[in-house]
């Protein structure tokens, strides 16, 4: 029951956050696109690691994801700190 109650919260938070980024970078679609690419690379690496059952180290660590997003979101401290709330082990 706890998981069912928490999942929509995380989902809504993610929707709001993606929306906020889209709006913030409306005039700079490349930044938004790069952000999506970082997320997809991270997800792909996580999936590879999971499928390899511990025999594969993801090429993109959480720290690297954070660093890449920090470079992308420079001068947008609020977006970056909110991103930190999603990232495991940040």
């Amino acid at each position: 029951p706890t998981m069912q109650n928490n999942q929509p919260v995380e989902f809504n938070h993610a929707i709001n956050y993606v929306n906020k980024i889209k709006n913030r970078f409306q005039g700079q679609p490349d930044i938004y696109k790069s952000f999506l690419e970082i997320l997809h690379t991270y997800q792909k690496e996580q999936r590879n690691a999971k499928e390899a059952g511990g025999n594969y180290t993801p090429a993109l660590t959480e720290q690297e994801v954070y660093a890449q997003v920090a470079r992308l979101f420079k001068n947008q401290e609020d977006l970056l700190s909110e991103f930190g709330q999603f990232l495991p082990d940040a």
Partner: peptide
């Protein structure tokens, strides 16, 4: 507005699964 493309939706999916993982490991 919530005018989401499939790419947006997958970003939402990745972010929410990251948040779940974060909660599971804390």
């Amino acid at each position: 507005s919530y005018d989401f493309t499939p790419m947006d939706s997958s970003a939402v999916y990745v972010l929410s699964s990251m948040a779940r993982q974060r909660r599971a490991s804390s």
